[in-house]
């Protein structure tokens, strides 16, 4: 064996990273597709969920309530397919940063609303808000998105395939 002992764990990490990326990519993709799809059947409720944040002017409510779910599904499908992963992950990160800020602002203003992240939304009892867990979840998804922005090439991708490891110093 001529492989240096010290290189071995590093090679292990290098081999595992694209697979880790695959797990994050597919997980994130499923979350986006589900989150978007759940907001489509009841458009009036989607509008109410947007209005509950008391952030967007009325003229923007339909675009946010009806357009965002489609964007979410599109990002999810690109991630699942492994096509244009970096741009999709950038959009994913921007969306999540925006959602996190909106939820944090609702919390800070003392509103009692459900984030409407997966459909539903609107006012809830003051003691059944879940701002902290919603923010933690969004930040975790944001971290996954950033990982994919940095390393968009993963395994089992249609287009953005990781280059397979082939011995040698470049591995």
């Amino acid at each position: 064996m001529t492989v240096p002992v010290a290189a071995s764990p590093r090679r292990g990490v290098a081999a595992a990273l694209p697979w880790a990326g695959t797990v994050l990519r597919v997980g994130l993709g499923v979350v986006w597709v589900v989150a978007g799809a759940l907001k489509l059947p009841d458009p009036a409720a989607a509008e109410r969920a947007v209005r509950a944040y008391q952030l967007a002017p009325e003229a923007l409510v339909p675009l946010l309530a009806f357009g965002l779910p489609v964007l979410e599904i599109a990002v999810g499908l690109l991630l699942l397919a492994g096509v244009f992963v970096r741009p999709a992950a950038v959009v994913s990160a921007l969306l999540l940063a925006g959602f996190t800020a909106a939820v944090a602002s609702a919390w800070a203003r003392g509103l009692s609303i459900d984030c409407g992240c997966f459909g539903g939304g609107g006012e809830v009892d003051a003691d059944s808000t879940a701002y902290l867990s919603e923010i933690v979840r969004d930040v975790a998804l944001l971290a996954a998105s950033v990982f994919l922005v940095v390393r968009p090439r993963t395994r089992l991708a249609l287009l953005d395939r990781a280059v397979p490891l082939r011995g040698g110093p470049d591995a």
């Binding site: 489509l40 458009p43 009036a44 989607a46 509008e47 339909p62 675009l63 309530a65 009806f66 357009g67 779910p69 489609v70 964007l71 599109a74």
Partner: peptide, 17 residues
């Protein structure tokens, strides 16, 4: 395609509501 899909969704959902 994404932009078109968003616009179509806004139109369809506006009609539904």
């Amino acid at each position: 395609a994404v932009v078109v899909a968003v616009l179509v969704a806004v139109l369809v959902q506006s009609a539904r509501t």
